[in-house]
């Protein structure tokens, strides 16, 4: 393995976990998926809105949070900052209905390191969570495409702001290569075969890409999201 590519996949602690979701069947569904990953029911905490979630954050230092983006009292993305303030090691995963790529990318800017799409089968959600647990992250072609577009066409992505979109740390050629392959529709297994790397290595690269997209301060995140036209 090349030195530049030396990735130490850190196993993510899954508990305690908070599920922020206003729809009760979906809450149950997510809990069931977590159960397949051997997460004990007593370690799962539920919140149905932002206010609930903030109370839960005050009470517990979560290691994992599954956050619905569209909550009745606001955007779930706003919970990422308090979660991180409480526990810097938290793994924030946003849960999106018919995935709107804008919101997912905004969540990545705000510090999320993964996302789940409600429309997908339980097995797939479980696979994604397994990948997150082992230190990787899932990705879809439309998200990869959006990230690449941000990097190569900042002027188009941010017509109201001439400042180019610079990541705090630029993407490596390998990361760009992986993004390119994802946009062609390849899944991580196929990419791993193509690059002669392990599947986990590929998924760790993806998680690193998400980390690089994260903007540290909340103000900065809002500014970045606004400049990208993601929020008004």
């Amino acid at each position: 393995m090349l030195s530049s590519e030396t990735l130490s996949a850190v196993v993510v602690k899954m508990t305690p976990v908070m599920i922020v979701e206003d729809d009760l069947p979906t809450q149950a569904r997510l809990a069931n998926v977590l159960a397949t990953l051997a997460v004990a029911a007593c370690d799962i905490h539920f919140a149905r809105n932002i206010a609930d979630a903030e109370a839960q954050i005050r009470a517990h230092a979560f290691n994992l949070a599954l956050i619905d983006i569209g909550l009745p009292d606001g955007n779930g993305i706003h919970l990422i900052a308090p979660l991180r303030a409480r526990n810097l090691q938290v793994t924030a995963v946003v849960v999106s209905a018919w995935g709107t790529e804008d919101l997912i990318v905004a969540a990545l800017h705000a510090g999320a390191v993964g996302y789940l799409l409600k429309e997908r089968e339980d097995v797939e959600l479980a696979a994604s969570l397994r990948s997150i647990q082992s230190g990787g992250a899932p990705i879809d072609p439309f998200v990869a495409k959006h990230i690449l577009r941000l990097l190569t066409q900042p002027a188009v992505a941010a017509p109201r702001d001439a400042a180019p979109v610079n990541l705090t740390e630029p993407l490596t050629p390998r990361e760009l290569e992986i993004l390119g392959l994802v946009t062609q529709g390849l899944i991580s297994r196929e990419i791993a075969e193509k690059l002669a790397r392990s599947r986990l290595t590929v998924e760790c690269h993806i998680k690193n890409i998400y980390r690089k997209m994260h903007v540290t301060t909340r103000t900065e995140a809002v500014f970045r999201a606004r400049s990208l036209g993601l929020v008004q």
């Binding site: 089968e121 097995v123 797939e124 696979a127 062609q184 529709g185 390849l186 899944i187």
Partner: peptide, 16 residues
């Protein structure tokens, strides 16, 4: 046009 369905179905089949 094939990319989303390819990726989606591959992921799903892969999970199975």
């Amino acid at each position: 046009q094939l990319i989303p369905i390819r990726h989606r179905m591959s992921r799903l089949l892969d999970a199975l």
